[in-house]
């Protein structure tokens, strides 16, 4: 039993870590702007595409990695400045539509550049090799991801709790207008948030695409949505919540992918049910249940609406 479940559990933890890195971007932006940044999943995908093209143009990988992270952060910064900043006083629906527009634009831009073909992701030497843990053989990236995720999240939490920028971020997410009155440069805080979010999405994309090996213009949509669900599940605005939510969703999704085989080996079902189809649907079903039962998520703060 354990031998059957273990490989799925392992890849679940790995995918969970990758979702966590994307989910942080969602949750931080939502915490501050109250905006679902629909384009975040596409920033993640664009990071993958930049890596493909940069590696193909002969830049050594060790230079590629920091350069990709830098460019991804810049893209996040630019998106905020171009598409969200002009709408700061507009109704929330307009900003969300703008986010959807950015997502549409990024996907079409990548479609144009790649010609709509799957791009093979370059192999990053240290994390692409195989490793055997107990009964399972996987890529090194599977093991590296959760560790790297925890380290990055720890660093981020330190940044938010113990630096001046972090304090400003917390203030802005508590009360937008008052923090402005206190002399906080709102635009700088928001830009920083987008840069951090995109940076983490860039790291996430390296880990994710090392695992899945191909990038296409739609690759960002599904991980993006799932990461958002993870952020909602953990309580939007809460970073530990997003991470816990992402791990739970990653594991649940992979267990469902293997549910047929697991149930079959356990003797509970006689023949495969095709349940693997539901691995994506489960995430969204979970979202609807969470929203209906406990909209604040696992660690979210309760908000009170004043009339």
């Amino acid at each position: 039993m354990f031998n059957t479940v273990f490989p799925y559990l392992l890849s679940g933890i790995s995918v969970g870590g990758q979702y966590a890195l994307i989910a942080i971007g969602y949750t931080m932006v939502y915490g501050i702007l109250r905006l679902i940044n629909f384009a975040h999943g596409d920033v993640f995908m664009v990071a993958g595409i930049i890596m493909v093209y940069m590696a193909a143009s002969g830049v050594p990988l060790l230079v590629c990695i920091p350069l990709v992270l830098l460019l991804t952060s810049l893209i996040g910064f630019a998106i905020e400045r171009i598409a969200y900043k002009p709408l700061r006083t507009a109704p929330r629906m307009s900003v969300m539509i703008s986010a959807i527009g950015v997502s549409y634009t990024l996907q079409n831009l990548v479609l144009y550049i790649t010609g709509g073909l799957n791009q093979i992701y370059p192999t990053i030497p240290f994390i692409s090799g195989s490793v055997t843990i107990g009964p399972a053989t996987t890529k090194v990236v599977t093991v590296v991801t959760p560790i790297l995720t925890i380290v990055l999240v720890f660093a981020l939490v330190q940044l938010i709790n113990h630096t001046k920028v972090g304090m400003a971020m917390r203030a802005v997410s508590k009360d937008f207008e008052t923090s402005q009155l206190m002399g906080i440069n709102i635009n700088r805080v928001i830009s920083t948030t987008f840069v951090i979010g995109s940076f983490l999405a860039g790291v996430g994309s390296m880990l994710y695409f090392t695992n899945y090996t191909t990038v296409i213009q739609t690759s960002g949509a599904m991980p993006g949505l799932k990461a958002f669900v993870a952020a909602v599940f953990g309580g939007i605005g809460s970073i530990p919540g997003a991470v816990v939510g992402a791990f739970i969703i990653g594991i649940a999704e992979n267990i469902i992918k293997g549910l047929d085989i697991i149930l079959f080996k356990a003797g509970l079902i006689a023949k495969p049910m095709g349940l693997a189809t539901f691995s994506d649907a489960f995430t969204f079903a979970l979202l609807i249940v969470i929203l209906a039962v406990k909209p604040t998520g696992l660690f979210g703060e309760k908000t009170i609406d004043k009339v």
């Binding site: 679902i36 929330r92 629906m93 949505l225 669900v229 909602v232 649907a281 969204f284 609807i288 929203l291």
Partner: peptide, 14 residues
């Protein structure tokens, strides 16, 4: 508003 957007989106995917 936005939770509703994402929930209906999820429903379409299901």
């Amino acid at each position: 508003s936005d939770y509703l957007a994402i929930a209906t989106l999820g429903f379409a995917e299901i």
